[in-house]
Simulated assay, not measured.
Amino acid sequence: MMFTAVWLKYVSLGVLVLQNTLLVLTMRYSRTLHSEGPRYLPSSAVVSAEVLKIFTCILLVFKDHSFSVCGLNQVLKEEIVNMPHLTLKLAIPSGIYTLQNNLLYVALSNLDAVTYQVTYQLKILTTALFSVSMLGKRLSIYQWLSLVILMTGIALVQWPTDTSSGTQQKDVTASSHFMGLLAVLVACFSSGFAGIYFEKILKETTQSVWIRNIQLGIFGLMFGLVGVCVYDGERVWQNGLFQGYNTLTWMVVALQALGGLVIAAVIKYSDNILKGFATSMSVILSTMISYFWLQDFDPSSVFFLGALLVISATFLYGYERTPAINPSEE
C-alpha cells in the first residue's frame, strides 16, 4: 500500500511536469505557426477543453460507480442537481478560470515560452497573499523570504536588453511584450484568487474531486460560450467554431483539459515541496526546449540570474523546517 502511494505520488508529479511543459510549448507554437487559412480561435479552444474535461470526469465517476448508469445518474442528480447552492458557488472560480485560460493564449501569442513560464511563477506570490487575507494562513519566514526572492527574479527576467533592430520594430515588439506581460499579471492574480476560493470551498464540502471538476466545467463551458459569442461571434458565423483546428490544436485542447485532472491527483498524492520541484523542472525544460528546438529565445546572463532566483524561490517556498528533536524525548 505504501509503495503504491509513493508510486502514485511520483507518477502524478512527473505527469504534471510534462503537462505544464508541453502545454506552454505547444500553445506557444500553435499561436505563432504560420499556416494557410484562418488561425484557430483561443475562445473556441477554451470551450473544447471544458467539454473534454467534463466528459473525462463523467467517465471517471462512471468508473468509480462500477460502470453503473443508474449509479452515475444518481450521483450526478444528488451532488449537482439537488445541491444548487453549492454548485452556484463554483460559478465564481469557474468564470475566473475561463478568463485566465483566455489570457494565457494572449500571453503566449506575445511572449516567448520561457519568459511566460518564469513570469507566471508570480502566481505563487498572489496565492500567498490571498491565502493570508482569505484563509488567515500564517506563512513561515522561509516562505516570506522566497516571495522577496521571487519578486527580484521576476524583475531581472523582465530587465530590458539592447537590440540592433530598427525603431519601428522595437516599438512593435515593446507593445507586444507589454500586452503579453499584462495578460500574465492578470492571469496570476486571477489564478491566486480562484485557487484560494476553490480551496475554501473544498474544505467545506466532502464531494469528490471529479464531481467538483464537472461543476467547474459546466460553468466554464457556459462562460466560454459567452466569450465565443462576444469576441469571435462573427468569425465563428463565417468559418465555423472549429476553424483552423489541426492535430496541434487538439493537442493543446487535450493538455489544457488534462491540467485540472493532474493537479487534482498531485494534491491528493503529493505535497508542496515536490510540487515546487515539478514547477521548477517545468521551467527548466521549457527553457531548454525553447532555446534548442523552437529557437525563439535568446537568453542573457541577467535572464539566467533571474530564472535561477525564481526557481530557488519555488523550492524555498515549499521548504518545511524539520523541528529539532528534544534530547529529553529520546
Results as ranks from 00 to 15, higher is better:
248 L>F: 13
249 T>L: 01
251 M>T: 15
252 V>K: 05
252 V>L: 06
253 V>N: 01
254 A>G: 00
254 A>R: 06
254 A>F: 06
254 A>V: 06
254 A>L: 09
255 L>W: 07
256 Q>C: 03
256 Q>A: 00
257 A>L: 05
257 A>E: 10
257 A>Y: 10
258 L>M: 10
258 L>A: 12
258 L>N: 06
258 L>H: 04
258 L>I: 03
258 L>F: 08
258 L>W: 02
259 G>S: 15
260 G>Y: 03
261 L>P: 00
262 V>A: 05
262 V>G: 00
262 V>K: 00
263 I>Q: 07
264 A>M: 10
265 A>C: 06
265 A>F: 06
265 A>T: 02
265 A>V: 01
268 K>H: 12
269 Y>N: 08
269 Y>H: 14
269 Y>L: 04
270 S>K: 11
270 S>T: 02
270 S>C: 05
270 S>E: 06
271 D>N: 07
271 D>V: 02
271 D>G: 01
272 N>S: 09
272 N>I: 00
274 L>H: 11
274 L>M: 05
275 K>P: 00
275 K>H: 10
276 G>Q: 11
276 G>R: 05
276 G>N: 15
277 F>H: 14
277 F>N: 07
277 F>M: 08
278 A>Y: 06
278 A>Q: 09
279 T>W: 09
279 T>Q: 12
280 S>E: 12
281 M>W: 05
282 S>H: 14
282 S>V: 11
282 S>K: 04
283 V>M: 13
283 V>W: 02
283 V>H: 07
284 I>G: 07
284 I>F: 15
285 L>G: 05
285 L>M: 14
287 T>Y: 15
287 T>F: 14
288 M>T: 15
288 M>E: 08
288 M>Y: 09
289 I>T: 12
289 I>F: 12
290 S>I: 00
291 Y>K: 11
291 Y>I: 13
292 F>G: 03
292 F>Y: 13
293 W>K: 04
294 L>I: 12
295 Q>I: 02
295 Q>Y: 03
296 D>E: 15
296 D>F: 07
296 D>T: 13
296 D>N: 14
297 F>N: 05
297 F>R: 05
298 D>L: 01
298 D>E: 04
298 D>W: 00
299 P>A: 08
299 P>G: 06
299 P>N: 02
299 P>M: 06
299 P>E: 04
301 S>M: 07
301 S>K: 04
302 V>S: 10
302 V>Y: 03
303 F>E: 13
303 F>K: 14
303 F>I: 12
303 F>R: 13
305 L>R: 04
305 L>H: 05
305 L>E: 03
306 G>P: 11
306 G>S: 09
